[in-house]
Write a protein that binds this DNA or RNA. Structure first.
Lengths: 196, 196, 196, 196
DNA sequence: CATGAATGAGGCTTCATTCAT
DNA sequence: TATGAATGAAGCCTCATTCAT
């Protein structure tokens, strides 16, 4: 039943994490399977026991990221609180998530590209951002309904808010000296007062 | 005596533009020198008469982008108008510039990565964003001084505003269906009212 | 668990020998890595599992040659016999060594060049010849001391003797019809009687 | 008749000399037509007005060298003097010739190779050395006949003498610190007393 | 004659993937 | 399962040669 007590999913996860570290360091384009294998402390060929191809590792990493995003969005949807507070909470959650696993965040740099190109593998940062916009637009609609946001606030403002969040992350990713932790408050404050 | 004459800078520019189109389509990593040559309708080897290496083409493209940014920032600094109007102008300028040359904007996806990695060739998106932050922080300081922005508004808010701008571009780049032209207004409105 | 095992040094040696044959045939400049791979009956890329670059193969071949030279010189130094007999022995040894592996000797044609050029990788035929001169000069000094060579014989004569040996090899290398085996005697005879 | 007063042969000679300097510096394999053109201070394409191909330049350089050799050999044949004095003269002439144009001598390193390979372009260092051997063998035969050289001295000794000469040149070419000028005497002395 | 831009074949090297052990 | 040697396709870049001016 278990001739070798290797836990396949666990091993796959280890390799994925190693890969994410490598990709974060050198970028996907410059990362070779051998680097990943070395980081995971296994042999090059063994990577292929857990992933079908180099691309698939990037897909898997994307999935991890997407899962995190979906969780954050879900929480904003289901939490009991006034809409603008839930918006502020979402912003805090995003910032916290990248603080917790900065390597995964760094991967964004590679995922942007792979999602935006024509060959369009099933990597869709676009999808993630669409979900963010939808969720935030819903919160804004609620806020308008209850009078905590001004009339006319809608999808465009949601886009700007998603932009503010992701644009701050972006600045931090390409310039890690930027104090990302101190930014959740200002983002929330500016966005909230910006829609009133 | 009447040697074949060519306007080298002009030809270099042509190749650069062809390269930018190719990079925008496939991404830098997937773009072969041969693709660039084909797009420019010259032979592969001829590319090397104008650029020392594949990397150098990316550098040159970055320079074009950086020049555009510097111009926009310069205009925001020197224009005669109330600070928050100049901020709105800067936002419009950025949106306009990417609308004018969308291919160049698409390059951002590649430039993010090349600037953020350790080997870091002299490509520094980080630098560009730093300039944006500085310029906007200066505008905000002026606004605070004249009372059109609330006390306490500073670098953090400048970062959020840069984020809002760049984050909106990012969403559009990876999802060109998004109506970027209609976003300059909302970005400006939200940011301006957000700092009051 | 039972990974594919290979005797790396042995394989490297095989490739090196194949390379030496190819270089001897076409010269280093005209020898493609693909030729070497074909001669070794492996794939082009496999060569790089054992050598870092095309140049490195030449270096390795040089090392083999240098090792042979050092051995010959060492033997002339340590053998128990009258100095001029040891000189004759050295001459025979050199001739024998090229007879044994003519391909390696043919490589001299390429090694001369790579040692003499300014960029000079660590290939130093000059060094080898310097060692020969030093060793022979020592033998001559002994011979002078014991009276079997005339007064005044010194480094200049050592240079001439090295020249006679290498010059004969050279003639044979570029004209293999020349009966190199029959030359050890005459070289020794002429040199020995020339220093008396 | 002379629409442009360019002296074709003279220009060809200039280019050839420039090429010889370049080849001496970097070796033929590493010398590009462009280097030669730059050294000759003309445009790359112009080289082809005087030479059909890169190879042909090397051929021409070889011819210059061969002409020098033939002259030296001719002088040894026709001079009026005892045979061993004419041998000593030949040795001096050779040494002098390389001292006069060291760059041409450095070319030997490339000519050895191009003559010895199978494709055998019409570059034949082998031929030159054969002529030397023949000439010297003739001198030795004369010397034997007049009793100034011992019985039995013949082609083998001629080969050794050619070897001594060329071997000394070789040592100097790959190690220019070696005092080649002081070697004509010792070579002659050793060879002459070696055949007595 | 002279130029130098353009060409494109060809070589070196890398690296994802395979597969024998 | 795990290994790592082997493969070979593919890409970057060089440079001899051509040719329009």
């Amino acid at each position: 039943m278990s001739p070798k007590r290797v836990d396949k999913p666990a091993r796959r996860q280890e390799i994925l994490e190693a890969a994410v570290r490598v990709f974060a360091r050198r970028g996907f384009a410059a990362s070779r399977i051998e680097d990943v294998a070395a980081e995971a402390e296994i042999a090059k060929g063994s990577v292929y026991l857990y992933f079908d191809s180099r691309e698939e590792i990037l897909h898997a990493a994307f999935e991890a990221l997407a899962a995190g995003s979906r969780e954050i969005v879900g929480r904003a949807r289901t939490t009991q609180a006034p809409p603008l507070e839930r918006l502020a909470g979402l912003i805090r959650d995003v910032i916290t998530s990248v603080t917790v696993s900065p390597e995964l965040a760094r991967l964004l740099l590679d995922l942007y590209g792979s999602g935006a190109r024509e060959e369009g593998l099933p990597l869709h940062m676009a999808e993630i951002y669409r979900e963010y916009r939808t969720a935030i637009a819903a919160l804004l609609a609620e806020a308008v309904a209850e009078g905590s946001a001004r009339q006319g606030v809608g999808v465009a403002e949601a886009t700007v808010i998603v932009g503010a969040i992701e644009g701050c992350l972006l600045q931090w990713i390409i310039d890690p000296a930027l104090p990302i932790n101190e930014l959740a408050g200002p983002i929330a404050a500016l966005c909230v007062s910006g829609v009133r």
